[in-house]
Design a protein around this nucleic acid. Sequence first.
DNA 1: CACATTTGACCTGT
DNA 2: ACAGGTCAAATGTG
Length: 335
Amino acid sequence: MEKTMDWEQSTLLNELTQGRDFTNMLRKHLHPSSSPETRQVLLDKILCSYDKALSLLNCSGYMVETKPRVSTLGSPESDASDKKDMFKKRKTSSGWSEQIRVCSATSLEGPLDDGYCWRKYGQKDILGSNFPRGYYRCTHRFSQGCLAGKQIQRSDEDPTIFEVKYRGRHTCNQVSHLVATPKEKGNHYREKQQVEEKQKQSEELLLSFETGLKVNTEDLDNRENIFPSFSFPIESEEVQNGLLRNSLMKNISPAFVSPATSESNYFSVSAFHMGSFDFSQNVQTSESELTEIISAPASVTNSPIVDLDISSLEKLEFDQSFPFDNPEFFTNFLQ
DNA sequence: CACATTTGACCTGT
DNA sequence: ACAGGTCAAATGTG
């Protein structure tokens, strides 16, 4: 099996090379006779490549060597020595966001679906904790280079609460696949189940918005690590100045915002689609707002993801008066 | 068959 | 030495 370090370096190289190639292509399409659509597509691809490359550098938790190196993917001699290197170059063990507590009031099954496909790669008993901690990474880590990861651990004090930590951001396309297109291979059955499940959950979702989804965030000093994959479509001055924050944090219930990266709600799905505004780095949130304790009905926590038509959301451009807190909006949306 | 999960071993940082 | 994070072979699942 290939080693992480090699895979990351190879992916990084790949993304940068792609970015350069797309840039060259874009240059060829700069003359007026070329279609704007083509230029836009190329631009998107370039940005996408940069995003992935940056994710690899910043979010992976690994230091990337500067010296050029031929990919050793799959080569036999890479195994023993490279494995050592891999760990040597690992940065400190942090890099996880602060924990987000997700309450599952009646179910002990734990938070299930946050709209992303996770693959469990490990579990550890943690000293002083009654419950083991599960380690997950994005299913599309190897296919799409998505470096998002999360930890889930059941709370000692309240077993109905799950403490979730996130790392990295999603650069994969899984949500749209899950919603719109069938997979070419593999997961047919599971994904079909998920989609059907989500349709069933639409009604629950409505209820849950009215009931109030609640999430508790704790120890939020390190705010830039919170909501690592949370993105919004706009990058206006208003956003930078925190006006959007006000509209998001107050007009939308905080619960709607907080667990977006996490275990439960629709927002995480839409956020993924909505582009480039990095919530975690642009939103400054007051202590009181973030430490507010909230809890959720199990029906909500377990999987209130709904496959809304994100393009419609984009058209709304997140007007400040956008009626997120108005149940009618969702009623209309879900019909 | 192709995935995902489980779990003991291994590695790193403290 | 220990704890936390990850790997990878074995096993499970649809």
